[in-house]
Design a protein around this nucleic acid. Structure first.
Lengths: 135, 135
DNA sequence: TGTTGACCTTCCATTAACTGGAAGGTTTAT
DNA sequence: ATAAACCTTCCAGTTAATGGAAGGTCAACA
């Protein structure tokens, strides 16, 4: 099948498939006589695998590793599990940071009158200038 | 003072300050006879304001808006508060997505034996191929 | 036969927010 | 004198695509 159908079936865009090929994430596809890319159902499975892995939060580089494991029948499932657990740890870190940021913003909002006046605790807090001078 | 000291005092890097100037986030600084940039304490306050706003999660474009408000004595604090509350809503959205992703990953990990064998529920779930064929 | 429209191709530019490095000028200290 | 520590500009790279231009191909339809 041609790239358009491969895109529809895999859930990736045509552009993204060509991009993945350009960075060597997937191997160059066969070409028909007219130069069009030709995809087998098995290649579409790989594309779909990539779509799901990206949507699950793996980076392209992590996808490259997962793909190697996916293709490698001699893999150890422990290796795959480690990748996933590392990813979870990353997410936990990111969640903590976002939650801290949310707390800061809510504190700011709480201390701000939010009225017609110019006096604003948020601005003051961001400025945090010892002189209190505005530029 | 020169850019190095302005960087130290504001908490931004020298590169970042020059970058902010290049995108017009801050106005071009005065130059000494030798071409070196010259910063006043007031300008450093602005740089510090930017450092804190970025660290708090505002994008550069949002910083541009905040900076206008920061400099504008005729601002309404309601406007500033709205910016902050919008940002909180964005964060809540992002937090939800990350938590969903974390759940998916933990489900995967739980169903994976994590042993020496090649059989791996994670790979199977990512593949999700109706044929079960590996490329 | 012509042409319309939906495909496909490659290549270049852009996004966000910097960071790294090259190549070179200036100042300060030893 | 020269080395270290500054400063300058400019170009390239990062992530993961996306948008668009310019052009080739193919099937259907009047």
């Amino acid at each position: 099948m041609k790239i358009g159908e491969a895109a529809t079936r895999s859930g990736l865009s045509v552009k993204t498939i060509r991009y993945y090929e350009s960075i060597g994430l997937i191997s160059p596809s066969e070409r028909a006589d007219n130069g069009y890319r030709e995809y087998s159902p098995i290649q579409v499975d790989t594309l779909h695998f990539l779509q799901r892995a990206r949507a699950t939060g793996f980076s392209v580089e992590e996808c490259r590793q997962l793909l190697d494991l996916y293709r490698n029948e001699g893999r150890h499932s422990a290796h795959v599990k480690n990748l996933v657990l590392e990813k979870v740890a990353q997410l936990d870190q990111q969640l903590q940071e976002l939650q801290a940021m949310r707390g800061t913003l809510m504190d700011m909002a709480d201390r701000c009158a939010g009225n017609e006046g110019p006096s604003c605790a948020i601005i003051d807090q961001l400025a945090d200038s010892s002189e209190g001078a505005a530029p």
